[in-house]
Amino acid sequence: MKFTYRNIFSSIVTILFVTMLFSCEGNLKGVQQMEIPEDAPQAIGAGINLKYTDSGRVVATLRSEKMLDYSNKNFPYREFPDGLIVEFFDEERKKNTVTANYGVIYNNTGLIDLQGDVEVVTSDSTRLTADQLYWDQANNWVFTDHPNTIRFKNGAVNEGMGFDSNQEFTNFRSRSNVGVQILEDENK
């Protein structure tokens, strides 16, 4: 048999093709082994400490031991199974703090669902405690259908089953409640 450049070249191409075919099969098996289950998060974060800024000014911080990111789902969300602490700062650097044992942030709706020993403390010392609390970020609205207690800065206490309020608690609507209200006498 006479060796020509054409025979040598086609032999080399054939050997490379066969080698690539076998190597692809090995990689395919490895990729299949790494396949992520359908219900698994896209990412897992540990020791989260996020700072949200606006024009260089910190407007909020979020701390959590663990975050599960399900942004790969049809209805994307981020879950905080070990709880979270969120601090909000206004233009005057006054701080409002929210804590909960569990939280979910739904990306498409901007709704935040907080559960388990939820506590909100505003900069003027108003304190809200509830089993569950929702915060609509788009409308700056806080609401719940669960039992809750609000202690206002003037000493008034409101215990009820469900309420709606703006996030500053200046427009507050309670569904059913009992409590102590403090009224100032305008004739003084």
Score class of each variant (00 low, 15 high):
residue 135 W to N: 03
residue 27 N to F: 14
residue 183 L to M: 04
residue 30 G to K: 14
residue 102 Y to L: 04
residue 182 I to N: 09
residue 72 N to S: 14
residue 35 E to R: 14
residue 103 G to T: 04
residue 4 T to Y: 04
residue 104 V to C: 00
residue 127 R to C: 06
residue 77 Y to N: 06
residue 84 L to F: 13
residue 15 I to L: 15
residue 94 K to Q: 15
residue 81 P to H: 06
residue 100 A to T: 09
residue 180 V to S: 00
residue 66 K to Y: 00
residue 1 M to W: 05
residue 12 I to W: 00
residue 74 N to C: 00
residue 32 Q to F: 10
residue 52 Y to H: 06
residue 149 T to K: 14
residue 6 R to C: 01
residue 91 E to T: 10
residue 155 G to S: 07
residue 136 D to V: 10
residue 72 N to I: 10
residue 175 R to M: 09
residue 25 E to C: 01
residue 149 T to S: 10
residue 87 E to P: 00
residue 52 Y to K: 13
residue 86 V to E: 07
residue 102 Y to T: 06
residue 107 N to L: 14
residue 144 T to M: 08
residue 33 Q to T: 04
residue 103 G to N: 01
residue 66 K to T: 11
residue 109 T to R: 00
residue 21 L to M: 15
residue 9 F to Y: 10
residue 125 S to G: 03
residue 166 N to V: 12
residue 111 L to G: 12
residue 135 W to L: 10
residue 70 Y to S: 08
residue 28 L to V: 10
residue 32 Q to I: 09
residue 173 R to Y: 06
residue 66 K to M: 13
residue 103 G to D: 09
residue 79 E to V: 08
residue 158 N to H: 01
residue 154 N to F: 11
residue 92 E to Y: 00
residue 129 T to S: 06
residue 45 G to V: 03
residue 122 T to V: 10
residue 65 E to R: 08
residue 110 G to Q: 03
residue 111 L to E: 10
residue 90 D to R: 04
residue 143 F to T: 06
residue 141 W to M: 09
residue 46 A to S: 14
residue 185 D to F: 03
residue 160 G to K: 01
residue 151 R to H: 08
residue 176 S to M: 05
residue 171 N to I: 10
residue 142 V to T: 12
residue 127 R to N: 15
residue 80 F to I: 03
residue 173 R to A: 04
